[in-house]
Design a protein around this nucleic acid. Structure first.
Lengths: 193, 193
DNA sequence: ATTTATTCTTAAACTAGTTTAAGAATAAAT
DNA sequence: ATTTATTCTTAAACTAGTTTAAGAATAAAT
């Protein structure tokens, strides 16, 4: 059962006892997602936290010119959700879809709130989780305001070695905030060094 | 007493009862900070969450060329801290200093953890706080990867109308990830519209 | 009130990154 | 196995943003 992967994930923060495992297991659902299948689309309300058992997702906006801007990638043992839409129950401006065929475990808003309220451990774990995600975003912002595209690309390769070769360069460029053509130039320049 | 400003801040999330107020009050300290005074310097461990009663702070790095890069501004009723240094108790790579003379209330790591463990309400409030800060950062990242400097500047002015005219343009440029000279160009272009 | 430090602006020469276009290479679908 | 769609690369012309320098304007300090 894939729930074990989620339990192991939790135990990296704080191990759960039997009651907590039972409660959690009752409140999540497992789904198989095909490549290119959406788990969130613009104007929907994001009603689930999604844990990725296996596979790879991207979360992105589409601007007025139809260009995609990738806000996050997430692969196995990571979470993906539009936090703003989820907590404020408002329409999302984001899309989430699968880059690879994936297996996910989802928990919806009311079940998550139930766990937070009845078992402080869950609230703690999710506090720490979001704190860690906040740190990652701070690092990324710092990169964006202080480094050139080439450095940001090199840093991306170092930081996400296990996903960078599963993601097409078009999407890496989008994530870095540059055009795919310029990323091509950068890659060419690096290979000549 | 300035603790009231902090209590009001909490009650915007979840109101505290008398016991919680007493516990909180025992565990915080109030400080006056002069202009340009540091509350965190590189290589120190950030041991406090800092609530700003009045005044204005910036958190930033200094790169190898001596250039400052502003990660965050924070003014009255907001928090500032290096979350990475605080939770992992490791040396910070950031500086925090006062742009204006300020009054702050600080709570240190062990006291905050005490409150989290004994009163779930504090853990909840700080979870929601960091979630909100995460949303802000997501918006900022999206801006950085998808918009030109002029749009990012306009957005900054709209989003932070009460601090943008208290901050020198050098620092706004740094926050936006552009040079002050280019910000000058942008301001000139906008004023001609 | 005066000096000193900081901030802001302008301009010219430059470089990082974009746009447009088109072909080559690779991966996905049947 | 072949077709179709997607991804990647190259190059030329362009534009957004940087660098260097220097003077003007404003704010801070005494």
């Amino acid at each position: 059962m894939n729930i074990n992967k989620l339990l192991t994930h939790f135990s990296n923060y704080i191990p759960l006892n039997e009651e907590e495992i039972t409660e959690l297991s009752k409140r999540v659902i497992e789904r198989n997602i095909k490549r290119k299948q959406f788990i969130l689309q613009k104007n929907d309300v994001c009603n689930n936290y999604t844990f990725i058992v296996s596979g790879l997702f991207k979360m992105y906006t589409v601007d007025k010119n139809g260009v995609e801007h990738v806000l996050h990638f997430a692969s196995e043992n990571d979470w993906i959700y539009d936090i703003n839409s989820f907590h404020n129950k408002k329409q999302s401006s984001l899309y989430i879809d699968a880059i690879e065929p994936s297996i996910i475990i989802q928990i919806d808003n009311s079940n998550l709130m139930y766990l937070f309220t009845h078992y402080q451990k869950f609230e703690r774990t999710f506090r720490v989780l979001i704190e860690n995600k906040f740190m990652e975003l701070e690092t990324r912002i710092l990169q964006n305001i202080s480094s050139k595209a080439e450095e940001r690309y090199q840093f991306f390769l170092e930081q996400y070695p296990n996903i960078c070769n599963r993601i097409p360069n078009v999407l890496i460029a989008s994530y870095l905030g540059i055009t795919p053509e310029f990323l091509s130039k950068i890659r060419n320049a690096i290979s000549k060094k």
